[in-house]
Every structure is written in structure tokens, then in C-alpha cells.
């Protein structure tokens, strides 16, 4: 089996602060492999069999290669950095278009296209959907478990309070719904072997994309204004021993807030 895993480098959101103007202060904030993407990669690493191949790819600036290096240390066999100044300012649509172009040209024989649920900086969760749409492949979201079968996969999806188990045809896109709170600590052997693997960089021309298909020019989103909202909370403590009455009080409070 061949797995193409899309990943993203993000600022470590636990370190991000907001300044007095409501802007994110990213100076000095370390960049990390997105925990959602890392979780998805680890899930695939967990089901891989001998002879399987994992290809990690990301779109980002040159320093995003550090996230790919981590993927190589965590089990990916090859890595591609999709990087070009023309990609700057891409919204989810332009990002999905570049990722879809990469898959069509460099990973079209993948048995599965894998994503994390969303990125921890943008939090849109739209890239898996739009990439699948552009590739005209089936998509399976909120995947908790996945197991390969002879010619397909079986996945278990968790939709809040309901679960669904279904067959996933080869070539589909899946996005895993979780994140590992304990994270991953790579072994020293994996670090040594991952450090020896190469990362290939691809630009706009290699992906066959026009200037108006990528980056800010290829984006459909236009940000008109950004405001920071200040949430003021009034805390009140009530001690109620009856759960029913407590629920009523919460509903009343919610009603009053509307």
C-alpha cells in the first residue's frame, strides 16, 4: 500500500500570545509539526506492513522542511516540500488546489490520501474536503481507526454521539479526528535514520499551476477586516444538590444570555 500524508507546520499554539492590539505574537514562538497531522501519520505508521510506503508532503515556506524531517523520523519514507513565493497568502481553496496538483502529479498511485482533522493554527478543517472534491475521490472524516484489507480499508468514524463503520475504497481521502495528548517521542534510531533521508522541493512550475491558481491571487477568501473580541465573563457560584434544578438554572442562565 502507498499512503500520501498531508502535513502542516504550525506555531506551537501553547506558546502563542496576543498583544494589546489583538494580534498574534509569533516572534520567538517555535514551529512544530501540527499535532493533528502527527496523530494521522502515527496512525498510518501503526497499520503499515512490510513493503508499504508512506509519502509525507506539505505546502509552506522553506523552514517547513523541519516538519517534514520530523515526519521522516516518525516513519515516512519520502517527503516533498511544496514551496514557492507565489504560494504565499493562500486560503483553503488555493492550498487545496496546490495539494491536489501535487497528488495528481507525484502521488497519483496512492492507495489512501491522509489528513489530520484540521490545523491547530487555522482551525478551518476545510482542506481535506476541498482536496478530495478537486480530486473527485470519496472522503471519510472523523476517522478513529483504520485497517487495511485486501483491496480496500475499513474505518470507524466517530460523529460525537454516534459511530459508523464503513468500507473505504482505495484512492479515498481520510482525515483522522484526534490528537494524542501525550504526543510522540521519537527513538534515537529513528532520529538517526530520518536524518539521512532527503526532502524534495517542488515549486509552482513543477506542479503545473498558473500564477492565478495559487497563493493570494488564486484565493477566493478576501479578509476585509480583523477584529479581536474581548469576552467578559461574570462568574457566579451556586451550590445546588439537585441535578435537575441545576440543569434548569443553567438553561435559565443561557436563556437570559440570549
Amino acid at each position: 500500500m502507498k499512503y500520501a500524508v498531508a502535513v502542516k507546520q504550525v506555531p506551537d499554539t501553547s506558546e502563542v500570545r496576543v498583544d494589546e492590539n489583538g494580534s498574534l505574537v509569533r516572534a520567538g514562538v517555535p514551529s512544530i509539526l501540527d499535532p493533528y497531522c502527527e496523530y494521522a501519520l502515527r496512525k498510518i505508521e501503526g497499520i503499515r506492513k512490510e513493503g508499504d510506503e508512506i509519502v509525507a508532503f506539505t505546502m509552506g515556506p522553506p523552514q517547513a522542511s523541519e516538519a517534514l524531517r520530523r515526519c521522516l523520523c516518525l516513519g515516512a519514507d519520502r517527503a516533498y516540500l511544496i514551496s514557492d513565493p507565489a504560494f504565499a497568502g493562500a486560503d483553503v481553496w488555493a492550498t487545496s488546489r496546490a495539494l491536489a496538483a501535487f497528488i495528481q502529479r507525484y502521488a497519483c498511485d496512492s492507495d489512501l490520501i491522509v489528513f489530520g482533522a484540521r490545523s491547530s493554527d487555522g482551525e478551518t478543517g476545510q482542506v481535506p474536503f476541498e482536496t478530495a472534491q478537486l480530486l473527485s475521490v470519496q472522503q471519510f472524516v472523523y476517522v478513529a481507526d483504520l485497517s487495511p484489507e485486501k483491496d480496500s480499508f475499513v474505518c470507524r468514524q466517530i460523529y460525537g454521539d454516534s459511530e459508523r463503520t464503513c468500507r473505504v475504497p482505495r484512492g479515498s481521502a481520510v482525515s483522522f479526528g484526534g490528537v494524542d495528548p501525550c504526543g510522540t517521542l521519537m527513538s534515537i534510531s529513528d532520529r538517526i535514520s530520518g536524518g539521512k533521508k532527503t526532502i524534495e522541493t517542488l515549486g509552482r512550475v513543477e506542479l503545473g499551476l498558473g500564477l492565478y491558481s495559487v497563493g493570494l491571487k488564486g484565493s477566493k477568501t478576501r479578509i476585509v477586516r480583523t477584529d479581536s473580541s474581548v469576552i467578559r465573563r461574570k462568574n457566579r457560584k451556586a451550590v445546588i444538590n439537585n441535578p435537575g434544578r441545576a440543569a434548569e438554572l443553567i438553561l435559565d442562565e443561557m436563556g437570559a444570555g440570549r
Partner: peptide, 10 residues
Amino acid sequence: DVSWCGHEPA
């Protein structure tokens, strides 16, 4: 193979 290394702050 089982010992850990970490090079990212997290």
C-alpha cells in the same frame, strides 16, 4: 531503538 530523543521545545 527504544530510547528517546527530542529536538523540538515541546
